Amino acid sequence: MRAVFVDANDSLAAVTEKLIRPNDPKVVVNRNASVTSEQLPDVLDGAEIAIIDHTHLPVEIAAQCRGLKHVVFLGTGARSYMNPEALAERGIAVHIIKGYGDTAVAECAIALMWSAAKGFARMDREMRAGNWLRSNGIELTGKTIGLIGFGGIAAEAARIAAGSGMKVLAWNRTPKTHSGVEFVSLEKLLAESHVVSLHLLLNDDTKNFLSAERIAVMRPGVILINTARGAVVDEGAMIEALRSGHIGHAGLDVFVTEPLPADHVLTTLPNVTLSAHSAFRTPEASDNLINAALDHCRRIVTTGH
């Protein structure tokens, strides 16, 4: 049984080649991060396992990939790139990887929060342009952070925020408990939190989850952090709230359209800090990610599923 990493960038290719063991299943690393969907049948060349980082796999293309039985997606957001249920109907199982970057993403969310609170990004832009802009910051000690969705990333964010002297509220779709975290209704969280950080998977139920109506409930001047997926927020409603100041600042690592177009309105708003969907990009997270992908391949070869 053979696996092909179809769209490895140089960094992940190097990590993969470093972590492959002598007795592992054969893994071919395709060092072409810009491979197209239409090229996948040729790139896979009959391989049973496709390791995919970011390339779209439409069902009609999968049907042309002879021998393909398993897709190992590098992350949790496979639905943004393929339809797992439709692929399953064709006998192709989609495997995702959870938890590999919990600490990395949580640290990014907290870093965006601090940057938003202190205005670092705007001051940096202005100083580079020759303007001595001094802005008033916000002290976060004693403030409340609300975490929407509570998995491994949110648990790490809660740990860091609590260590910074913040009160931590959380809401989750299913009941949970966690030391030092108060689980409350969504309405209470939105109304009381000085910082709201999103940690939801994107699916049909969570698309536009943070709607105009829910944004209106948020505390005026709130800091909004999104390291989840761009589409969990109604982007238009968020932009209007940023313009009015109802959302005081947004720290965004994810967007509805990626890469973010150069002329996108978010690039023109002074109260937005932008990050290029890079929350998970640390050497530690990359090692965790590729090790987990290789473990999937090892299990598939050993057990057949």
Rank of each mutant, 00 (worst) to 15 (best):
T144K: 15
W132Y: 13
G151K: 07
G146N: 07
K176N: 09
I153E: 03
A155S: 15
G137E: 06
L169K: 01
I160V: 14
N172P: 07
R173M: 12
G137P: 05
N172R: 08
G137Q: 09
G165H: 02
L133Q: 12
N136K: 14
A161K: 02
R173C: 08
L133R: 11
E156T: 00
T174L: 12
W171E: 05
R159I: 06
A161D: 03
E156G: 00
L147G: 09
N172L: 07
A155T: 10
E139V: 10
R173Q: 13
I148F: 04
W132E: 02
T141R: 14
L169A: 02
K143N: 03
F150S: 03
G146L: 03
G137I: 11
K143E: 12
W171Q: 02
R159H: 13
I145W: 05
M166H: 03
A154N: 08
L147A: 08
K176F: 03
I160A: 08
G165M: 03
R159N: 11
R159T: 14
R134V: 13
A155Q: 14
A162R: 15
E156W: 04
G142D: 07
G142H: 08
T141V: 11
V168C: 11
L169P: 00
F150N: 09
A157T: 15
I148T: 09
S135R: 13
S164N: 14
W171H: 15
A154H: 09
N136M: 14
G151T: 10
I153A: 03
G142W: 06
I138D: 00
I148R: 05
A157D: 02
W132V: 06
N172W: 06
I148Q: 01
A161P: 00
I160Q: 11
K167V: 10
I160E: 02
T174D: 07
E156I: 00
M166S: 02
K167Q: 15
M166Q: 06
I153M: 13
W132P: 00
V168N: 05
I148C: 06
A170N: 08
T174Q: 13
K176W: 01
G152M: 10
S164L: 15
F150C: 05
E139W: 04
G163N: 09
W132T: 01
K176I: 08
T144S: 11
G152D: 04
S164E: 04
A157S: 15
G149F: 10
G142M: 11
P175F: 06
G149W: 10
K143F: 04
I145A: 04
A162P: 00
G149T: 12
N172E: 06
E156Q: 15
G146A: 06
S135A: 13
E156F: 00
R173F: 10
A154D: 12
S164T: 05
G152P: 09
T174G: 04
R159E: 13
I145S: 07
P175R: 13
G152H: 10
L140W: 01
A170F: 03
A158M: 09
R134G: 00
A157Q: 14
T174S: 15
P175M: 10
G165L: 05
S135Q: 15
K143I: 01
T141Y: 10
S164C: 15
E156M: 11
T141E: 13
G142T: 07
